[in-house]
Amino acid sequence: MDPFVVLVLCLSCLLLLSIWRQSSGRGKLPPGPTPLPVIGNILQIDIKDVSKSLTNLSKIYGPVFTLYFGLERMVVLHGYEVVKEALIDLGEEFSGRGHFPLAERANRGFGIVFSNGKRWKEIRRFSLMTLRNFGMGKRSIEDRVQEEARCLVEELRKTKASPCDPTFILGCAPCNVICSIIFQKRFDYKDQQFLNLMEKLNENIRIVSTPWIQICNNFPTIIDYFPGTHNKLLKNLAFMESDILEKVKEHQESMDINNPRDFIDCFLIKMEKEKQNQQSEFTIENLVITAADLLGAGTETTSTTLRYALLLLLKHPEVTAKVQEEIERVIGRNRSPCMQDRGHMPYTDAVVHEVQRYIDLIPTSLPHAVTCDVKFRNYLIPKGTTILTSLTSVLHDNKEFPNPEMFDPRHFLDEGGNFKKSNYFMPFSAGKRICVGEGLARMELFLFLTFILQNFNLKSLIDPKDLDTTPVVNGFASVPPFYQLCFIPV
């Protein structure tokens, strides 16, 4: 058959498939802009700032609406009420993970971030239990974070109060905490193996944040037939998995079943207990991918939040002064901060919360999916439909947070200066898919920041009023603009 005829037939089939998918069930789905064949609503979305586009569309179609990214149908949730109703009140029905062709290629359905069903539930339950087990290797997770915080302070001392970009050092600290939990080992910041790991993690975040990856996920045929950065992403992930597998083999040879040292040991012990169960989800494949998931999810998000926190503290020296006064009063100079201190430091706690609220790190979270046909607000959402959640619409709700575009710790303080919780605080998402490392991340943010401010004054290279804190939105995360500062020993 003539190649031209084959091409026309293929394009015609794709067009018909697109029209059929977009028209099927439209009477039951939430409203939304009319999609174009094949490309859907992509032309109506700013790929570099999806969150802003969703906010604009919500003003037209309401808090629940339908979009098509290519052939992929998505239902968008915008605003606290619908997000709570879906992710919390109907948590089980909305607990699936959205379709990610690239991740599915890399992870093969294993791990904790992109798995679904029984596998996801069992691996998540085990990971939560293990991360909360403060007795691994007779050292609590808090001990590990405190140790890394001391190392971080010593690295900052080496800058000798000269101007520096904190990106690298602030990236090393949370990565080392995860390494300590998974591998029972922290690395020197100049260790070549550690630097290679950091390089792969950072490069992957840069790649994932590009519009090209959005295109690959919406048109998965590209993955096999086109060159691009997605190939580098898959190569980096394969490198990390190979490295983790080597460490798993080392653990198998040296493990003491009665004295687990780290996450890998705990997983291997669980595998041993379930070795007679042919349906067990505790396999080497799941261990390797879960460890890679924890490394990827637990490094860049925390380091970016820390980097943004220091920029905001530079911009608002009056806030920094209040935090340091609270540190001096509650902790002093002669001991290290600990998590028990947080309950006695409402202002510092409010500042950490406000940093996370203000920066809105992951504006749309990772997409969910419905696990069955769901009736939601008089609409029928078919099983498997991807759910896109606007966390921006919750964290920047102007009824809950007056002047949401302003950095103001009073958003989390009552009139008496006591810490005030808010149900709208969802930087880790909400419901059954809430970030498994939430507790660890909150511990790291509090301890790293208090250790830094206990030991250093922060000095800006320019007038604080002239510092730009506008986030650089890159399609996946909101990151701070480049800046330098000086760490002046107190």
Rank of each mutant, 00 (worst) to 15 (best):
V5N: 11
V5M: 15
L7T: 11
V8M: 12
I19A: 14
R21C: 10
Q22G: 12
T34Y: 11
I39R: 03
I39K: 03
K48Q: 13
K48H: 14
K48A: 11
S51R: 14
F69Y: 13
V76H: 01
L77E: 00
G79C: 00
V82M: 07
K84W: 07
L90G: 09
G91V: 03
F94K: 02
H99Y: 11
I112G: 05
G117Q: 07
I123Q: 05
T130H: 14
M136E: 12
S140W: 10
E148V: 02
C164E: 06
D165S: 05
F168R: 13
P174L: 08
Y189C: 05
K190G: 11
D191F: 03
F194S: 04
E203T: 09
S209P: 06
I215L: 14
D224A: 08
T229M: 14
L234V: 08
L237P: 04
M240I: 06
K249Q: 13
H251I: 01
P260T: 05
C266G: 08
E274P: 05
E274L: 08
Q278M: 11
Q278N: 15
T283Q: 10
N286E: 04
I289K: 15
T290L: 09
D293Q: 06
A297D: 04
V323D: 00
R333H: 11
M339N: 11
M339T: 12
E354L: 02
Q356G: 05
D360R: 04
D360V: 06
I362V: 10
P367S: 08
R377S: 04
N378C: 05
Y379R: 02
Y379V: 03
I381P: 00
G384Y: 05
T386R: 13
L388M: 11
F401M: 02
F407L: 03
D408I: 03
H411N: 06
G417K: 08
K420R: 13
K421G: 11
K421N: 15
S422D: 02
Y424Q: 09
G431E: 02
R433G: 02
I434A: 13
L447K: 05
N455R: 12
L458Q: 03
S460P: 05
I462Y: 12
P471V: 08
P471Q: 15
A477P: 07
P481E: 07
L485K: 00
